[in-house]
């Protein structure tokens, strides 16, 4: 095979990869610009006059707008809390020796695997008893179960890469442990902290099951809102796809920012 032909095949393969990964995304975005008759055309149309009516509709719809605000509040709060609790724990796991350390470490990691339905049942019953159903707090707390492990994992890895000599020098200067953490590990570990924060934001933003079970009207999140369109006969596909686009776009941008760490985040560091 000649080198030119190989190059062409390589290029064609890469373009096929692009089509594969981007097609459903493209189809959602393009559908969000179609009017109802284009959407219901059979077979579907690929070229059409775009309309912004669907976006105007959803931003005028208080329920949709409100749910996006709710998602933003929940994801931001839970991310902040995860970092606040997770980063110090990561520091302890990275730099201290103590009994039960590896058990603790594995416990954090195991939380990554647990199906949300296992916790959704008891947490629902507890939330009913404590009258916490449909509050931000219950979602923020339950999201910690998957966010804390991710923050602990990524930050531990990051803190380990900080030269221990810095810590020793600071200790000789009389700095206590909390000062060392605040003045050395937080600023130098900031890239890792940021990556872990972005991950927990993405995971919380995308979550559906807990939100479906634990919220009603007032703190309904955007994914729950989007799925609630799915009833009745004539589905408003334009609005559904516009809402979908608005939900997916911000997390996609975040994910592109941390794309180099994506695999590490999803496997808890099985690969470097």
């Amino acid at each position: 095979m000649s080198t030119t032909l190989r190059r062409v095949l390589h290029g064609a393969g890469l373009i096929a990869v692009l089509c594969f990964t981007l097609f459903p995304f493209y189809w959602m975005v393009s559908s969000s610009f179609k009017d109802q008759s284009d959407l219901l055309a059979s077979p579907p149309v690929w070229f059409f006059t775009p309309t912004f009516a669907n976006y105007a509709d959803i931003f005028a719809d208080e329920k949709v707008f409100g749910s996006i605000v709710n998602s933003l509040i929940v994801a931001t709060l839970t991310t902040a809390l995860s970092v606040l609790l997770g980063a110090p724990a990561a520091y302890a796991l990275a730099r201290f020796e103590f009994r039960g350390k590896s058990d603790l470490w594995f416990w954090f990691i195991s939380n990554r695997m647990i199906s949300p339905i296992v916790l959704a049942l008891p947490v629902y019953l507890l939330a009913v008893q404590l009258k916490m159903l449909d509050t931000y707090l219950v979602l923020v707390l339950i999201y910690l179960t998957f966010n804390l492990p991710i923050v602990v994992w990524i930050c531990t890895d990051q803190f380990r890469s900080i030269p221990i000599e810095l810590e020793q020098a600071a200790r000789l200067d009389g700095a206590d442990q909390f000062t060392i953490f605040r003045k050395i590990y937080v600023p130098l570990g900031l890239p890792g902290i940021a990556v872990s924060a972005i991950f927990s934001f993405i995971f919380s933003w995308n979550e559906l099951l807990y939100a479906l079970v634990l919220t009603r009207r007032s703190v309904q999140t955007a994914p729950v809102m989007a799925t609630s369109f799915m009833s009745g006969y004539e589905l408003p596909w334009g609005k559904i796809m516009a809402t979908g686009t608005v939900i997916v776009l911000p997390v996609t941008i975040f994910a592109l920012l941390v794309s180099r760490h994506m695999v590490r985040g999803l496997t808890m560091g099985a690969t470097k």
């Binding site: 993405i202 729950v224 979908g244 997390v251 794309s259």
Partner: peptide, 24 residues
Amino acid sequence: LARISLVVPLATTYAVVGLIGRLI
């Protein structure tokens, strides 16, 4: 470009993947 595009499916909200599936 192809490498970075791999991130898009992974980041797409799972519920929205379901919505897209219903349309497709």
